[in-house]
Design a protein around this nucleic acid. Structure first.
Lengths: 192, 192
DNA sequence: CTTGCAGTATACAGATCTGTCTAGTATGGT
DNA sequence: ACCATACTAGACAGATCTGTATACTGCAAG
């Protein structure tokens, strides 16, 4: 019955990550205190410190989960197409879908990073996710036959970030669309 | 002598804005407490509350000053050129110059906005500055003869934001250069 | 001379923060 | 039956937060 018990009642770790995911993303990692997190998770404070050791580690785990969620969202879009060009543009479809989701508040890494004091270990998690995205773009650019995949990837990241900022700051949901159109133009120019 | 006294020792308001400008930008508006600000400003706590009324108002004033500083930086670059195309690209020169400045930590509005709770009055200051930048791009795009200045302006803001994020998150100082090159391409395509 | 303004210094209230600690409970494996 | 594991409940320490209140100083204008 251990499996059943786990599926009935999620582990403290999972409940904490879920609660942290909502609160940290909505209100900021510094603004939300430990007490709010454990209250929403329905978990004792000692469980948090037994599981994660510190608030900083909880934040790292929260951002790690965000990274995996983004990977999953984008991968789902990539799997829809065989054509290399369509796969590359699918990343921007994923971003549009995410940005139009109710409760969207911008890029979790960007938001968290703005709250960190210089030299925080949390930043490395952001770096991993950003590195992954850049590498993904470079791979897709190569698949699509771009002359300089790395250069195109840097441009695509520029568009991706710009669209995320527009969605976050201006509530501009058409920014992902605009970035997608520009990405298509850049790709076409890079293969011709 | 009142004028001289003022120039010898800055007013409490100016000293507070200066201290807030450094601390809020470096460590975040929520992270830095009132006590740190008044200590660096060399000012009594009552002076802060007499002058600004609340921390929230101090944050608004800080962002207002950031807006004026950005306007001044960009205007200085615009004044260097007569040619419409060069003026438009000068905005990206300004951003590169700013991003390579020691102590650069990204866009102040983006950073502050990430710390705000939903519905904060501080956001309106961000909106003003972003609206100004978009309007500036639209005007420059029109000057340069773009067919659809508003559409081009939206694309240029995308590049501008993307470069700011790359500089902030990756320490990528070439991002402004890359954005400038893309802006030139987009402008050329929009006037031909 | 007096009145008022701007500022200083400091104590305080009340809340909230992270993190530690003690003590107790439920459960499954051996 | 026993014990380890995982968890709960809650008090507590020590710091820090915003904002208010009190009492004082220096100065300039009328």
């Amino acid at each position: 019955m251990s499996k059943a018990a786990v599926s009935e009642r999620l582990s403290a770790r999972q409940r904490l990550l879920e609660a942290a995911g909502e609160l940290f993303y909505e209100e900021g990692v510094n603004t939300v205190g430990i007490d709010r997190v454990i209250e929403r998770a329905g978990v004792a404070k000692a469980s948090l410190y037994n599981t994660f050791g510190s608030k900083d580690e909880l934040i790292r785990a929260y951002l790690g989960a965000q990274h995996e969620a983004r990977q999953a969202r984008i991968s789902a879009h990539l799997a829809r197409h065989q054509d290399a060009r369509a796969r590359l543009l699918g990343v921007f479809d994923s971003m549009r879908e995410n940005a139009t989701r109710p409760g969207f508040r911008g890029c979790a890494f960007l938001r968290a990073s703005a709250e960190l004091k210089a030299g925080s270990a949390v930043k490395s998690v952001c770096d991993v996710s950003r590195g992954w995205l850049r590498g993904l773009f470079a791979g897709l650019a190569k698949e699509a036959g771009a002359r300089d995949p790395e250069a195109l990837a840097a441009q695509l990241v520029l568009l991706y970030d710009g669209a995320a900022v527009a969605a976050q700051m201006d509530g501009d949901m058409s920014a992902a669309e605009r970035a997608r159109a520009l990405a298509g133009q850049l790709l076409d120019a890079a293969v011709s």
